[in-house]
Every structure is written in C-alpha cells, then in structure tokens.
Amino acid sequence: MRARFESPIVLLGSRLLSPYIMLFGIYVIFHGHYSPGGGFQGGALLAASIILIRLSGGRIISRLQVQEFFTTPLAAIGVIVFFGTGIVAMLFGSYFMDYHALPFPGEMTPAELRYYGILVIEIGIGIAVMAILVMIYDHMVRGEDYA
C-alpha cells in the first residue's frame, strides 16, 4: 500500500465543486417534468456530490456533511414516501398509485393532481437513490486506510 498524503488542492477543488453538483441534481429532480431528468438521474447526481467529498476528504471531513448512520433511514424514508403516496391515493377512494384522489389543498383538476403526485414520487426516488448509492460506497470502503 502506498503512503497516503493529504492534498489541500484536491480537497479545495472538491469543496468548490460539490455544492454546484448538488444544486444541479436538485434542479434535475424538480425540472424533470419539463426536460429530460427525474428522480433517478437527480439522485445519482446528489450521490456524486456527496461521494466526491468522501473521496477527497476522508472519513473525518465527510462526517461533517452527511453522517454515515444517516443514510439507511434516509433510504427507507424514500421508499416509504413512494409507497405512502400510493397507499394514500388508495385510502381516498382510488386505485393504488392512481393520483387523482390525492388530498392536495385547493381546487385542482385530476390532471394537475397527477402532476403533483408524480412530483412527490420523484422526490422519493431521488432521496432513496442518493442514500443507497452513498450507503454502498460507505460500506465498501469501511476499514480501509484511505477512508
């Protein structure tokens, strides 16, 4: 194993780049209705921004951004958001995953309700994909000397 050394340039560049990648990931999730994008792609970009800090900074610094124990509940929350949207639509008198019965406030046509239902499940997909990719990375490098 080669000796490890810390490079402030790499860490500084990653810290500069990471928030913009994260912002672009959130943009891809929320603008997925009007342009190519959506939950899966945006979640992968969010995971890229977090893993970039983990690669360049190591365990001590990356703990300041997203804690390691935090990813597993976040993944479960993402799946529960997706599944709960379908269950809520079913409880309000529609089929499973048919969003036109969702109880959003305000008077809306079924097409607009489906618009917001798709937005909610895209957010759930994005959270789950981000948390799971970071979780896989965390458990793979655990115990290595560069992590």
Partner: peptide
Amino acid sequence: VVGVATLG
C-alpha cells in the same frame, strides 16, 4: 440504476 445497485 438497478444495474449500478446490483454492481454494488
């Protein structure tokens, strides 16, 4: 995405 996760 499923391919990436199963690769993990």
